[in-house]
Design a protein around this nucleic acid. Structure first.
Lengths: 203, 203
DNA sequence: TAGGCAATGTTGACAACGTCAACTTAGCTC
DNA sequence: GAGCTAAGTTGACGTTGTCAACATTGCCTA
């Protein structure tokens, strides 16, 4: 029912529009008014669905984390059945590279996910939980590998996960923030970086 | 000469005030008007010294990179004279931990340094050069170790530097963005993370 | 089937902010 | 001392986030 007084599903439309603007023009391009115009609605209509602009951005960021988590989950399930250590190592490297590729594909979105003010990140918040879930996925991956016995190390999986996460996130962040010269073969570079770390963790 | 029409050294005062506001209330607290008030000057006076707010923030960020570079430089020169590989490993780990500590001590400043829009990061800009210099410091550290022969690896130092930088930056970023639960002993955690990576790079 | 309530959307207004234009002041040079 | 220029001031404007008051609709109930 176009042109009706009520939109139908403004909330979803807003998130979609925000994601779009984000990809096109960065966070700065995401303004309440622009969103309203894009969704064909008046300036303040979005406030019926999001208390504040920050809340809306938080929801967008949370969506990003959900996607990322789903990606990791999918890849984790593709673990080689007959896992020897070398195969597992390669598999991990592939996951890490996929993580970096995600950031590389959605740079503005990725920045938003991690750039939100730390204050809006209190426990129980949408964003906190979404980020936590993505991290848990990493922990799970490492814990399963330890349980299978292909990977043995002194560090508990939670700690390992932080270290591994730091590496891929750092790589992604430097790339996305334009701080790093883009390697000729990003995928290969990410793989070898993760592989190196893995070798170290297992030493 | 207080209360005089001319301030004397407004540019410096502005940078100091900005750094202060940044530490106190985050980037959001840094507004042109607040800076003017802090330095006892009218709203638009800052524009005599910085063409735009972005330019001012860029200068603040560049100062941060300079500090970070100086820190790394100082630590690099403290390399153990009779370097065997174990000592060198410990030394690297200490540098990495210091890097993380820097971010932890000046969280908002650190975020500003890396969070500037990639567009303002063109070659030749203040910020670009400052970041580049800090990175060059890392490359130098690793190149010297390779030259001394204590560290041997297939990767060229520039690439190694990116990997190492990714790890410490990732750690710092996760911490500063409130995404990581703060480890009980941050310093020890950072050290062991860097040490693990090193082991891997040398394998 | 009519009435009413709650959800959703609209218009008008405001304050904060970045920034431009026009004007003023002070210090230094010739 | 005259005057140029760097540095500072006031006034104004457009953009943005957001509040308050009002309008419209869909749906639930009597």
């Amino acid at each position: 029912m176009p042109d009706s007084y009520h939109h139908g599903d403004l909330r979803t439309a807003l998130l979609a529009a925000a994601t779009d603007l984000l990809a096109t023009g960065g966070v700065e391009a995401v303004t309440m008014r622009a969103l309203a115009e894009r969704t064909g609605v008046s300036r303040t209509a979005p406030y019926r669905h999001f208390a504040t602009k920050d809340a809306l951005l938080e929801a967008v960021a949370a969506e990003g984390f959900a996607q990322l988590q789903a990606l990791l989950h999918r890849l984790a399930d593709e673990a080689p059945a007959d896992a020897d250590r070398a195969a597992e190592r390669t598999h991990f490297a592939a996951i890490g590279a996929a993580y970096v590729r995600f950031a590389d594909t959605h740079p503005a979105h990725y920045r938003l996910m991690y750039g939100r003010d730390a204050l809006t990140r209190e426990s129980g918040s949408l964003l906190h939980d979404a980020g936590e879930a993505a991290y848990a996925e990493l922990v799970r991956i490492l814990a399963e590998a330890q349980a299978r016995g292909t990977v043995r190390t002194a560090m508990p999986p939670e700690q390992q996960a932080y270290v591994a996460w730091s590496l891929v996130h750092g790589l992604a962040a430097l790339l996305v923030d334009g701080q790093m010269e883009r390697p000729a073969d990003l995928d290969a570079f990410a793989r070898s970086a993760v592989a190196s770390l893995l070798d170290g963790l297992l030493a």
